[in-house]
């Protein structure tokens, strides 16, 4: 169990590092999602199922959806919502 814990901690650090280093935003978002899922497992191991549930639902689910939406809106370029009224 303790080996699994340290392995997961190493994976958390690795995914966090990868999420901030990639130039491509989409890959960063996916790594952030993986980061949240590993963090959920860590919370479960440390007997905090309430926080684990919140992290799984908000971190892995909602954050990914909202970031994807923002990316798709920013990449639209000329159809972006911030330039429409110009």
């Amino acid at each position: 169990m303790i080996i699994l814990k340290y392995l997961l901690l190493i994976f958390v650090m690795a995914t966090a590092y990868l999420a901030i280093t990639f130039e491509e935003e989409l890959i960063s978002i996916i790594f952030l999602s993986i980061f949240s899922i590993i963090l959920t497992t860590l919370y479960l191991i440390h007997n905090a199922p309430d926080v684990a549930l919140a992290e799984a639902v908000i971190g892995a689910g909602l954050n990914t959806a909202i970031f994807m939406t923002v990316i798709s809106q920013v990449r639209e370029g000329k159809d972006s919502i911030f330039r429409e009224d110009d």
Binding site: P49, D50, A52, L53, A54, V57, I58, G61, L62, A65
Partner: peptide, 16 residues
């Protein structure tokens, strides 16, 4: 485990 916040976010995910 769970409660209003977590279940509420799951319900919000349906709209997504």
């Amino acid at each position: 485990p769970g409660g209003g916040f977590q279940g509420g976010v799951i319900l919000g995910a349906i709209s997504i």
